[in-house]
Computed example of a mutant assay.
Amino acid sequence: MPPPANTARNVGINDVAARAGVSPGTVSNVLNRPERVAEATRLRVEEAIRELDYVRNSSGRSLRAGRSDSVGLLVLDVTNPFFTMVAQGVEDQAAEAGRTVMLLNSSEDPERQRRSLRLLAEQRAAGAVVMPVDDDVTDLLWLRERGIPWVVLDRGDVGADVGSSVYVDNHAGGLAAGRHLISLGHERITFLSGPLSLEQCRVRLAGLRAALDENGFDSENGVRVIETGSLTAASGDKAAEEVLAGGPRRRPQAVFCANDQLALGLLKGLGERGLGAPADLSVVGYDDIDVAALVHPGLTTVAQPKYEIGRAAMRLLAAELDDPGGHRYERLLFEPRLVVRGSTAAYREP
C-alpha cells in the first residue's frame, strides 16, 4: 500500500529539499539566510515551498535562538473597547517589525497578571507591553531579570530608571472634565471609580479635585467617591442605586466616571429608574470608545489617543529589542481632550 501523499500539515524541510533537488541545509539557508544562496537555486526552493504548501516550524528556531519573534500584550480587560484599540495599535506596529503579538488578559487581578507574565517567560517571548493592575512592579522586574524587556502602558508613575512607559495625562483629563461640569453650574459632583488601586482612577480623581480647588470649592467634601470593583458597564449599572441614594435633594448634580464603560452602565441604571442624563444629572465618561458617540444622548467624555499610544508602546519596545545595549528608557506623555456631547447640560434646580 503506497504511503499517503504529503499534506500541508506534515510537509517537512526534507520534502522541500527533495522536490527542489537540493540539500536540507540549502532549504534552511533560503528560509533564514537567502543572501547566501544563488538566485536560481533560491527560486527553485521557493517554488517547491509554494507547490508543497510548506509552513515553517518557527518553534524550534525560536528555542535555538533563545527567544521567539512574539511579544506579549497584557491588558486589564480584553472586553473593553478601549483596550481593543490599544491592541490594534500594538499589533499594527509589531507587524511592521515582523513580529506577532500574544494577547493576554489580567482581568484586573494581580495573581492572573503574575501567571500571564510567567507564561511569557515560558514561551520565550521577545518582550512585552504591560498594563499593570496596581503599583507593585515586582512581577515586571522579575520578567526583566529573565532577559525579557517590557514597556508599561497607561501608567505614569513608573520611573525611567526601571523601564519605558507610555501614558496619557490623566490629571489633565480629570481637570478638563471638572472644569466642564463647573462651567455648567454643577457643584455637587460624584466620582464613579473603578478600583482605586489603579493609578488611572486616582489621578483622574485628583484632576477633578484640582478643578474644584481652582474655582474656590471644597474639593474634599465637594466630591463624593464611589469605588466599584471593576471598570465595567455592569459595575456602573449596579452603582446607580448608590449614586441616587438619599433622594432628589441629595443626589449629585453630575457624575464623572473613571471610564466610558462605567458611564454607559450608569446611564442604563438611571434609565431603569425613570431618570436620565442630562435632564436629571449630567454624566461624563473617559476614553471616548466608539459607542460613546452612538448612544442617545451622546456621552460627553475625555478622549484618549488609544491607537496611537499602542503604536508608541510597541515602538519603544522594538527600539530596546533592536539595541538592548545602547537603548535608554523613555517616558512618552500624550494629552487627552474633552469631547462634549449631549449627556451634560447646565444645572437646573429640581
Rank of each mutant, 00 (worst) to 15 (best):
P2D: 01
P2K: 06
T7K: 03
N10G: 02
V16Y: 00
R19K: 13
N29L: 15
A38Q: 15
V45Q: 11
E51D: 12
G60D: 00
L63S: 03
G66D: 07
N80P: 02
P81M: 00
M85H: 06
E91K: 08
Q93C: 15
V101R: 01
L104M: 13
D109A: 01
P110L: 10
L119M: 12
P132M: 04
D134F: 05
V137M: 14
D139A: 10
L140C: 05
E145A: 09
E145I: 01
R146G: 11
V152F: 07
V152K: 06
D161E: 15
D161L: 05
D169V: 04
A172Y: 01
A176M: 15
A176Y: 09
H180A: 11
I182R: 09
F191H: 13
E199M: 11
C201R: 00
G207P: 09
L208T: 05
L208R: 03
A211I: 14
S219R: 11
G222H: 02
V223L: 00
R224W: 01
I226M: 04
E241M: 04
P248V: 10
R250I: 00
A254D: 13
L264V: 11
L264I: 14
G265V: 07
E272I: 01
G274T: 06
A279Y: 02
D280W: 09
V283W: 08
D287L: 02
V291F: 06
G298A: 13
L299Q: 04
T300F: 13
P305Q: 10
E308S: 13
A312G: 07
A312L: 11
M314T: 06
M314L: 11
R315G: 02
P324M: 10
G325D: 14
G325H: 05
E330F: 05
L332E: 09
L333N: 10
F334C: 09
G342W: 13
A346Y: 03
